[in-house]
Amino acid sequence: MKTIVKKHPLAIRWFHWINFPVLACMIWSGLLIYWANDVYKITVGGKLLFKFFPESFYKALNVPFRLAEGMSWHFAMMWIFAVNGLLYVLYTFLSGQWRYLLPNRRSMKEAWQVLLHDLRIRRFEQPFLKYNGAQRIAYTTILVMGVGSLITGLAIYKPVQFGFLTWLCGGYEWARLEHFALTIGYVLFFLVHIVQVAKAGWNNFQSIITGFEVKKPAADTKTTDKH
């Protein structure tokens, strides 16, 4: 006999896995669009530190001269990205799942402990099954970022009709920069997410597909799941 613990509801698993290819497509098509006016860079004291993006990067990914293609994908997939995201938010709040997601009073401290643990500075046994403090903060941030991408995106897409949003973003050019910065944020999130999922192991990973985790018979008081 095996004891399984329900972790991710079916709806959330669908939202997660629909979002993955859709967001990937949005980032890729966004890159095709960005190339046509690739003005962002990081400078420190007038010295160029990093240019978004180096020519070699564009070449390797076959980005140049695909603006029209990028726009046509971007403005088709935006619907799925937006609808899937809104349904996720609605579901999370109506089903009560927000209780596991939103950061609480302990989250900040716990996130710090998780960070120290992950950097191998101090051990931290996680007491919760679903999300630890670091996860609550990260996954809530990503949700807010999604809303941010919608707002900044609409502000660039229809700056006359959504003039209020464009104004809210600080103008057209700021909105474009913010939209870009959020995308860089997704990429960084993705990298950390992958490393953490790999570290957490198979039982944790398969739960975003099956919905449950199998409880280890010996450790029935202490499940060390994360991510």
Binding site: M1, K2, T3, I4, V5, K6, K7, W17, L129, K130, Q206, I209, T210, G211, F212, V214, K215
Partner: peptide
């Protein structure tokens, strides 16, 4: 969180169905 007990076979079957749908989609 909600806990349920199943036989090993049942758990395997549930996983297999989920993975099959995942790969198909």
């Amino acid at each position: 969180m909600e806990e349920t007990t199943f036989t090993k076979r049942q758990v395997l079957r549930k996983s297999a169905i989920s993975f099959a749908i995942f790969i198909l989609v």
